[in-house]
Simulated scan of single mutants.
Amino acid sequence: MAVDGAANSSKGDGDAATWLPPERGIRCEYVARQISVKASYGLWVTAAESDAMRRVLTSCPGQPAYESPLAGAETG
């Protein structure tokens, strides 16, 4: 997701437990995409990050899951 320089700088390497987009209307999509990427690449999620993701997603039950970034990638 594209963000302006100031928002990107404020995020740094923060996860969902420490940083969410300031615009509440895109938080559901942001968290859903983050989960998709982490699941696809087998990345870890801290307990605090998992709790924050759950809190966000409970406010948007209609948020679709995103396809894995690895879908359709050739194996070799």
Rank of each mutant, 00 (worst) to 15 (best):
M1L: 01
A2Y: 08
A2V: 12
A2K: 12
A2C: 09
V3T: 03
V3E: 01
D4W: 12
D4T: 15
G5H: 02
A6R: 06
A7W: 02
S9M: 13
S10Q: 08
S10P: 06
S10W: 12
K11L: 10
G12N: 05
D13V: 07
A16K: 01
A16N: 04
A16L: 09
A17N: 11
T18R: 13
T18P: 03
T18I: 06
T18V: 12
W19L: 12
L20C: 05
P21V: 02
P22K: 08
P22G: 14
P22Y: 05
P22M: 06
P22Q: 11
E23C: 11
E23T: 12
G25I: 10
I26K: 10
I26E: 03
C28A: 14
C28F: 01
V31M: 01
A32P: 03
R33E: 01
R33F: 00
Q34N: 12
I35H: 01
V37Q: 10
V37H: 09
V37D: 04
K38Q: 12
K38E: 00
A39L: 14
S40G: 09
G42S: 06
L43T: 04
V45K: 04
V45N: 00
T46E: 14
A48T: 15
A48P: 06
A48D: 15
A48I: 07
S50T: 08
A52V: 04
M53W: 03
R54G: 02
R54V: 12
R54N: 03
R55K: 15
V56Y: 02
T58D: 07
S59G: 14
S59Q: 11
C60N: 10
G62R: 12
G62H: 12
P64D: 09
P64E: 03
A65G: 04
A65C: 06
Y66P: 02
Y66N: 01
E67V: 14
S68K: 06
S68F: 09
A71V: 09
G72K: 10
A73K: 07
E74D: 05
E74R: 14
E74M: 11
G76V: 07
